[in-house]
Design a protein around this nucleic acid. Sequence first.
DNA 1: CAGCTATGTATTTTT
DNA 2: TACATAGCTG
Length: 830
Amino acid sequence: MSDFPDDMPFFDGPAGGPPAARPAGGGIAARAMAARQQPAAPDYLRGLNAEQSLAVETTEGPVLVLAGAGTGKTRVLTTRIAHILATGRAFPSQILAVTFTNKAAREMKHRIGMLVGEAVEGMPWLGTFHSIGVRLLRRHAELAGLRSDFTILDTDDVIRLIKQLIQAEGLDDKRWPPRQFAMMIDGWKNKGLGPAEIPEGDARAFANGKGRELYKAYQDRLLTLNACDFGDLLLHPIRIFRSYPDILKDYHRRFKYILVDEYQDTNTAQYMWLRLLAQRPAGAAVNICCVGDDDQSIYGWRGAEVDNILRFEKDFPGATVIRLERNYRSTAHILGAAAHLIAHNEGRLGKTLFTDRSDPDDAKVNVHAAWDSDEEARAIGEEIEQLQRQKHNLSDMAILVRASFQMRSFEDRFIEIGLNYRVIGGPRFYERQEIRDAMAFFRVVAQPADDLAFERIVNVPKRGLGEATIRQVHDTARALGVPMLEAAAKLAESDELKPKPRAALREVAANFERWQKSLETTPHTELAETILEESGYTDMWKNDRSAEAPGRLENLKELIRSMEDYESLRSFLEHVALVMDAEQNDQLDAISIMTLHSAKGLEFETVFLPGWEEGLFPHQRALDEGGRSGLEEERRLAYVGVTRAKRNLHIWFVSNRRIHGLWQSTIPSRFLDELPEAHVEVTEASNSYGGYGSGNGGRQNPYGASRFDNVGSFSNTYSTPGWQRAQQNKTEATDRNWGTRSGHQVERIGYGETDSGFGAGRTSVKGRTIEGELVAKSVSNEPSRFAVGDRVFHQKFGNGYVSAIDGNKLTIDFDKAGQKRVLDGFVMAA
DNA sequence: CAGCTATGTATTTTT
DNA sequence: TACATAGCTG
C-alpha cells in the first residue's frame, strides 16, 4: 500500500530537506520568499512572545507545549502549521493535525486559512481522532474485516444492539442493563482492549461471568452488520498498523509533522494510535508537537489519561518542553484566584500564569451568597441587566454550571424577565427523536443491511407491527443470513404471517425498494423529502396535537436544508455520524448558559459561576467514586471555570438547593476556601429581600432568615466558608441555632511549615495543609428525630405538621406553603 | 398492540 | 420533583 490516491502529488524529497516543488497556494510562496530574503521574521510570526515563537519555530524533534489557559495555545498551533507550510518543510497533506472536537478542527482550519490561504484545503489529515480514524479505516477496511462502506453506529444503536445480544444469551436485561455494558465496552475500547485482552475480573463482573463472550459476540455482530462503533474507529487502525508494518511505514513516510491539540485529554487508545504513527527508526527524530494543559484535564471520567502528558518527556526523549505562562485573557485578580485554587492539586507539571496588566480598576473576584437557587437566578439576572444598562453585550457574558439541572432556574427566570439566552450543549440536533427517525429511513435506503436503522423505523409511523412480528423478521434474517429488510420482503411474500402484519411488511419492503431505485436518479434532498412524505412520517407529526410537533416538523425541514451542503446521501450520513452537533447560527445578542465542561476553550468578559456548594461542586459523586483524584478533577473544573473570565467573575453559592425534588440545606464549596483573600471580595447579595433582620431567625421575612443575613461581617473578616462549615457541623449536631454563624477565624490553609508535622489526623502535603477533614455530611441515615403529627418549623415554608416520615425525608403539611417533602435536618421543632 | 400507571433513578460529553 | 422506562390492562 504505497499509493495515496486522493492526495496531491507526493514528493519524498531528500531527507530533512524541503521538497523540490512548492505546494499550491500563491500567498504562501510569496511569504516564504519574503521570509528568505529578509532577516526579519515573516508576518505570521509577528506579535508572538518568545516562548510562543520557540514553540512555532522548533519544528524538528518532539515538542511539548504546556499552554496555560489563555496563553495563545491555538495561535501557536496554527502558526506552527503555517510556518511549516510557508517554509516549505512539508506539503499540507504531510501534516497530521489532530483535535478532539469537530469545533476545534473547524476553528483550526479557519485560522490556518487566515494565515496561509488556500493551502488549508489541501490538509486532508487535519481533523478529530475519529474523523481521521474513519479516513484510515475506509482505505484499509478489508484488513479489519469490513467493507469500505461500513456504517458508524452511535450510542443509541449500540445500546439497542447490546440489548438484543443480552436477550439472545437468555439473560435478564434488567439485571444486566445494556446501557451499563455499553459503557463497559466503551471503557475497554478507551484502553485499547479487545475481547481477548480485557481483565478477567472485568469479564466476570457482567452477565454471570459472560462479559467476555458478550463483548466478543458484540464485535462479531458489528462485523456482520458491516458496522463500527466510535471506539472501533481508533482500534481497527491500531490493529492494522500493528499487523501490517508496511502500511504503517507508508504513513510514517507521509506524516512529516504530527500535531496534537488538548493532549491532556487523550485516552490510552488515542495514545497508542499516536505512538504507532510517531514511531521512527532508532536515532531519527519524530516531529511531534503536543499541546495541552494538565491543569485543564477534566475528562478523566471518560477515559482521558493525564498521565500521557505528564509522561511526554519519557516517551519522547530529548523533547523540548515549552511553557506558555503569559496570559492574555484575564485580569491579575482572576489569575491570582485561579492560581491559588489550582495550587491545591498535587501531581501537576506546574505552571503559574502571569500577566503584565495591572489596572487598579480591575474588579476582584466576587463571591456572593443567596438563599436558594431561585434567588441566585434572580440576583444574577439583575446583575446582568445592570451590565446591560452599562452597554455590555449579552454575548460577552456566560453562566457556567456544574450540572445541567442548574440551568433550569436561569432559563425560567430569563424567560420571565425577557432576557435573551442561549443554551450551549444540551440535547443536540442530531440526537432529537424526529431527526434520528428520519436518519434511520435514509440509512436503510443507503445501506440496506443496516438492521438497527431498519428496526428503528419498521413500525414508524405505527403500522401494527408489534414485537412478535419484528422478532419473526429478525429470526428469519438470522436464519437466512440476510439483512432484515430482505427477510421482511421474503416474509411478506410467504404465508407465515397474519394478513395485517403481512400487508404492512409488504408495504415497507416495497417502499424501500422504490426509494433505493431512485437513489441513483433523484437528487438526494428531493429523495429525502419523498421518503418522509411517502412513509407517512411527516403526516404523523402533522397529526400530532402535542406542543412539540410543530418544532419537530421544523427540524425535519432544517434537516433537508442541511443536506443540500452535501453531494450525496452517503456523504451526508457520514457527516452526521461523526459530527453530532449542528452549527449555532444566530447572531442574536444573548447570554450563554452552559456546563463547565463545554466551556473549556471559551472566554467571556463576564462569567457567572453559580452553585459552588459541597455536593454539587465538587460533585458528591465525583468525591464518592473518584476519591482524591476525583476531587482534583473537580478542582481543575473550577480552575477552567475561573479562567474563562476576562474581566469580571462572579461566584455564587446558595444555602438551600432542591436536589431530586427535596430541599437540602447546603454548605459552601471548599473551593471557596481555596480562593485567595487578596483577590476576592465577598459581596452582599444585592437583592430586594435584603435587610431581613439578623441573628434572630428573621421570621418577619417571608423567605425566612438566611445565615448570610449579616453577610457584612462575613465580608469584613473573610472568615472562610470552610470554617463556617466546621462551625455549622458542630452546632447542628447539638442545637438548631440558625442565627449568626460568622466567626473571625484565620484561614487554615496556609503555605509554609506552620502546619506540618503535627498530628496524624492532618493531611500534610509538601509543607502545606490541605483541609481534608471538613467534608460535608449532607444526608444522615439516622432515624428521624420527628414523629408524625409533630409541629415543626421550616426556614422557607414556615410552620406545619409532619404527615409522613420516610427515613430522613419528611412530608410536611405547611400552613401556608401546602404539602412539601423536605429533609429532616432542615426543620426544627416549633 | 397501545396507552396507561407504577417504578426507579437521577454528573460532567465527545465521537 | 421530573423524567424515562417497564409492566400491566383494555
